[in-house]
Nucleic acid binder design. Sequence first.
DNA 1: GGGATTTGCGGTCAAGCGCAACAAATAACG
DNA 2: CGTTATTTGTTGCGCTTGACCGCAAATCCC
Lengths: 390, 390
Amino acid sequence: MKGVSDPSPTEGVRQRNLARLLRLVHLEGPLSRASLTETTGLNRSTIADLVGELGRLGLVEERAPDPSRRVGRPSPVVVADARVVAIAVNPEVDALTIAAVSLDRSIPLRERVDVDRLLSPEETAALIAERVAAWRRGPLADAQIVGVGLAVPGLVRASDGLVRNAPHLRWTDAPVRDLVAEATGLATTVGNDATLGATAEHLFGAAQGLDDVVYLNGGASGIGGGLIVHGMPLLGAGGYTGEFGQNRPGIASPVDRRADGGVLEDEVSRARLLAAVRLRGADDPTLAAALAEAGPDSEAGDEVARQRRILATALANAVNALNPAAVVLGGFLATIAAVDLPGLTALVQGQAMSANAEELEIRVASLAEDRLLIGAAEAAFADLLRDPSA
Amino acid sequence: MKGVSDPSPTEGVRQRNLARLLRLVHLEGPLSRASLTETTGLNRSTIADLVGELGRLGLVEERAPDPSRRVGRPSPVVVADARVVAIAVNPEVDALTIAAVSLDRSIPLRERVDVDRLLSPEETAALIAERVAAWRRGPLADAQIVGVGLAVPGLVRASDGLVRNAPHLRWTDAPVRDLVAEATGLATTVGNDATLGATAEHLFGAAQGLDDVVYLNGGASGIGGGLIVHGMPLLGAGGYTGEFGQNRPGIASPVDRRADGGVLEDEVSRARLLAAVRLRGADDPTLAAALAEAGPDSEAGDEVARQRRILATALANAVNALNPAAVVLGGFLATIAAVDLPGLTALVQGQAMSANAEELEIRVASLAEDRLLIGAAEAAFADLLRDPSA
DNA sequence: GGGATTTGCGGTCAAGCGCAACAAATAACG
DNA sequence: CGTTATTTGTTGCGCTTGACCGCAAATCCC
């Protein structure tokens, strides 16, 4: 037995307090020591001790006090150390985006590596390792890299970061976490892109401060989703939550049906919108402009309305089940939602339980292309934020 | 400032450890002190101290050691004190069921009060108070009643226990929590019946030990559901989660459609099953027997198959979104599922993402009519289990 | 420039838990 | 049947943690 567990019985307390402080300055930005004592309820002397330890660990810095117009001695400002960075990666069909995201939420480095063919998981790992090595020799020479986070468009097993299936990358059962960890020598986390996007919107974007959020993103290849529940990302038993794109919502009018299976992402799709405005391969702003130009009384307008009706049923189903505080829409779903947000909200409320929908807000995602990088970095920071002294 | 917060800095630790121990003996049943040290990782002396405190609080008892055939000094067995009870209540259309549920999971008292008309919230509160008062003078004379838990068939606002709408009780915006608390003088919690049923199945029933569970119950008046997520009940922003009955699942074949709106509980309903076997008002076992007698190649068999197809789509939608470890079905949904559980599982797997469904288990609820009482009692015990020293 | 206010800093103190040594109770063994 | 091994409860002690207190420093208001 001889429990050689904790050297100190109350180390759990200290760990939690350190984590609380680090999380605060990471999520809220620079905070004075005084405000830290106030929000945590800890004693001034305790805050001094804890901040000192975080400083010695190289995780926070103390800056000169802000010229506040309050009476009394000014309080130093505690800020997350910008030299602590995570490597955030988003492999996509046409490019691999890699960035360095600091603990102070700045993004000092970002690079888009265009590729003319699909990269294998091994090639992806090698490319990441090469960029990280180059950055280490240069701009990140004095940085402390805590890990790598990947946002993968596909099903990712939560337990071991195995990519079960990423259809348009053509990755199947690829041990991406282990490959990247070995290639870079860094702790690596792999997550589903939509789940990480939901995390980012929850922490810093349109769903900030809301504990129950449904996030749906419309991409070129389909509809992905992520869930925030109890203020945390919901991974489910295997890690495959939020796959609303494969759901089959009821379609009230038979004339609205286009695809055989009735699968949401076959009925509500970017491709059908592009076809309606006679475009091939445009980005979302271009698509939005074309739809606006066509107007509501055009073929394109009818298609938007049709997709909105089906989307509303799918959202109502989710709202009935999960009673979220907000639904956040990204990608082309944001485009077709923004045409008339109150109208879409009303459509959803008409099909959902009244209590579930009455305080529901449907919002447009707000973090743009940084979303996945922020979410991936957040996943890489997670261990550090849970136990800063490790 | 002068933080008069905690008398001791580490009281949080002690509170958590006390809660861990009490929760263990409550959920797992009698446990020896030795096994407590092993599962918690705490020191023997600490366990002795904590168990002593729980004993002084009247929450646990220590019994003579089990005649174990192991070497070494026998370890006393720690048991939750049976005198600590919660009052569990389930108001329904035709009766009000009220029970005393002990912390050791026994149910020493249970009473079904038949009513020939709908009771108002105020009458319900008065009836509960009357029964509790009578029990206090008799069988519960030496009991420590920690609170009242109600399982209400309707929408319950989590923040204040207001019953927003319980259609077949005809309660609307009824402050049930406050009414019962005032009438009885006891701390009261109010929850949705399906959510509390899910909790019970999660803690003691078919979904024991699973952190991600979707629970659906088919009753006479519709389909209710509850969700377990992160090992906890999911309440959502307002408290109205799990309302799968109002969802609109896709219906593959138009000939399967019976109702106009395509709402699940209009398509999949007990009433339609009863009609198919020409019965009026039968309980679930009778219905199951009638369906079995009719056989699969009858009108009733066709209706069961139709309902199973639609139910499968609704379940697949939930599985895609939530990736639960198990789906638990109760009421008449258990009846139509049990006809061919592997077949229903296959139907769901055919419409869900393969990864989400591959380890999915569809199970039949196992707690029978005790389910709601256990769930309601658990809700009433929640505060005690969170902070035993309060 | 003086008073008020707020903060930082060092020292002291109580609480909580681990640890080690000892005692007790049982099984295994000769 | 007695001895040994094993396991566990008990007791006293020490370490860690964070609150509290008094003093000095820094800033604003007058």
